[in-house]
Design a protein around this nucleic acid. Structure first.
Lengths: 146, 146
DNA sequence: CTTATAGTCTATCAAACGGATAGACTATGT
DNA sequence: ACATAGTCTATCCGTTTGATAGACTATAAG
């Protein structure tokens, strides 16, 4: 399951990307636009900032803005940030491998084999989908329904 | 994340499939072989039985055995049984669709779009991997490392 | 027909996690 | 100096997860 944190994070980033401007957007505005509990969103945006995905400005006229171009922010990075490794099972993770303590022989573990496939498929999608990609896909839907 | 229940379930089923015989296997044996807490495994096997994946026999010489052939038991079914829908987000689920209450326009929701791809990829894998498939893959690894 | 065996069922539990809120603090533009 | 808006720490409650205990029931063997 995707956590609300990841979900809200992607939504907020996407809203900022869509916005396009270099003007900072206030937390409160973002929260209202995307229907996210404001206080909860605060923490999320802070994390994103501390990991270099967002920039912030304090005081009057302050707010958040993207720290990189939409085409350089990948959904995979965001999801990993809040939900940890993509792999359904730690021993199938590429970026955060941890062996199972109960596993007798990892190489021939059936669970690990399938889940490794799942993690690869997931990573292939999430690590190739940027905010820009997503935005384009959304736009396409919007236009196609005249 | 894959729950321990799903993990243990697949492991137990796989052990029964590998076994191949029509002789029932006792919970205690299965638990020891696969390093699963016995009492915990009990409940898991019971669920699998109640959903028609296993047969059971009580008393002396009793135990569990597969209710269908390994080629007709899919990992997807097992995982859904214990962990619910494969989709990372309910609104992206095929088998258990539930709309997000906070969603303004589902058709143009970026999160839903990506997650729909992820769920499709996951389902393509898990719903096409049977115990028999998995067993073959495991065997191949075993043989290849001479 | 009784006894040992092995699955069935219900209840309970502690720990961890997830989603969320409160409030004090700090930097900044006017 | 004051209002604004992000920063940080603490806390909270409900749910889920992984696990155990114990009473109950069916069955095969002697």
């Amino acid at each position: 399951m995707l956590s609300k944190k990841s979900k809200y994070a992607v939504k907020a980033l996407l809203a900022l990307a869509r916005d396009g401007t270099d003007e900072p957007v206030r937390i409160a505005d973002l929260a209202e636009r995307e229907q996210i509990p404001k206080k909860f969103l605060e923490g999320i945006l802070l994390s994103l900032r501390n990991h270099g995905l967002l920039q912030s400005r304090k005081g009057q006229g302050g707010g958040y803005l993207l720290a990189r171009e939409p085409k350089d922010i990948y959904v995979g990075q965001v999801v990993r940030l809040f939900d940890g490794p993509l792999a359904p099972v730690p021993c199938a993770s590429q970026t955060a491998y941890v062996p199972c303590d109960d596993c007798q022989d990892e190489a021939t573990c059936g669970v690990r084999l399938v889940m490794r496939s799942v993690r690869d498929a997931t990573a292939r999608i999430l690590d190739h989908t940027s905010l820009a990609t997503l935005l384009r896909r959304v736009d396409r839907v919007e236009h196609s329904r005249s």
